[in-house]
């Protein structure tokens, strides 16, 4: 168990990693990555019961699936800093011959990745399949997944959401990153979806809300509640309210940094706001 300070230190370092990765190749998605930094740190350091080594089948451990694959910088940083591959490899993000592709893939053999994602809306179905495999294997570990709120506009999600409740997939905790932003602007402007909570509840899911999705303690508390709701016949949805670009003031509360890298000056400001805690790669 880590204390909150340790988790916060790691989060700060992860933010630095994200900024430096996208800056170096002048591409990638910092906004959503920064918004989910606390969630990833909490998930990999505290919430999931996982093995130290990676094998694809993941029998006897909790598994995580990232559906909104464009936030690969945060995923890669946390995977590296929790021991799946060398931290130095973050240097190769989006470069030719790298295992750290623009969007996560199993194809290059990067430990920690169990399915490719990037084309949106597919991750929940995969998570449900993995959850059903766990049940068939009498494996009581859980499946976690993360999805963007804008991503819910993809219809396949609703096929999956319907299936999971209709078939009592109750070993699944799907988290929705509610940052209210997508590429073209606010989700409410691009395609208003109404209440996501009402929708999940209407589809028969148990919904847990984490209103401070950038607060580690709030995340730990909320995810503990979510975990306590598993095994009761219903899939569990966590609505994680986050701020896109969190931790870098000029990137916050806007969709502008969804898929844009900072320039040298902006990187310097961002790094100034996030002290080097564990050592840059």
């Amino acid at each position: 168990m880590s204390n909150t300070q340790q988790l916060e230190d790691l989060t700060t370092q992860v933010r630095r990693d994200i900024l430096r990765m996208v800056h170096k190749v002048n591409s990638g998605h910092p906004g959503g990555s920064l918004g989910c930094a606390e969630f990833f740190v909490a998930l990999y350091k505290e919430i999931m019961d996982r093995k130290d080594t990676f094998d694809m089948d993941g029998i006897g451990e909790d598994l995580f699936f990232l559906s909104n694959g464009h936030i690969s910088p945060v995923f890669y940083s946390v995977l590296a800093r929790t021991g799946y591959f060398p931290v130095e490899e973050l240097n190769t993000f989006r470069l030719i011959d790298s295992r750290l592709q623009g969007h996560p893939t199993t194809h290059e053999g990067l430990p920690g990745i169990r399915v490719a994602s990037g084309s949106l809306g597919q991750g929940m179905s995969v998570a449900i399949g993995a959850a059903q495999a766990k049940k068939l294997n009498n494996d009581t570990h859980l499946i976690y997944s993360l999805h963007g709120d804008g991503e819910l506009q993809e219809g396949q999600n609703w096929e999956a959401i319907m299936y999971a409740s209709g078939n009592n997939v109750d070993n699944l905790i799907s988290t929705i990153d509610l940052n209210g932003q997508q590429i073209d602007g606010a989700t409410d402007d691009v395609l208003p979806m109404g209440s996501i909570k009402d929708k999940f509840e209407a589809f028969g899911w148990t919904v847990v809300e984490i209103n401070q999705g950038n607060n580690i303690e709030a995340i730990l508390e909320g995810m503990a509640v979510a975990k306590s709701k598993t095994g009761k016949g219903k899939p569990v949805c966590v609505l994680l309210k986050t701020v896109m670009g969190n931790g870098v003031d000029f990137m916050m509360h806007t969709h502008a940094w969804h898929g844009k890298a900072p320039n040298d000056e902006q990187l310097a400001i961002g790094l100034e706001q996030n002290a080097e805690t564990l050592g840059d790669y």
Binding site: D57, Q122, S125, I128, G129, A130, A133, N167
Partner: peptide, 25 residues
């Protein structure tokens, strides 16, 4: 127990099939 009726939802079926392989099915 090894049969999954997914309904008229082929996209979800393909995704679930991919997920089921993780765990050796």
């Amino acid at each position: 127990e090894r049969f999954f009726q997914v309904g008229i939802a082929e996209a979800n079926m393909i995704g679930m099939a991919a997920g089921l392989t993780i765990g050796g099915k």
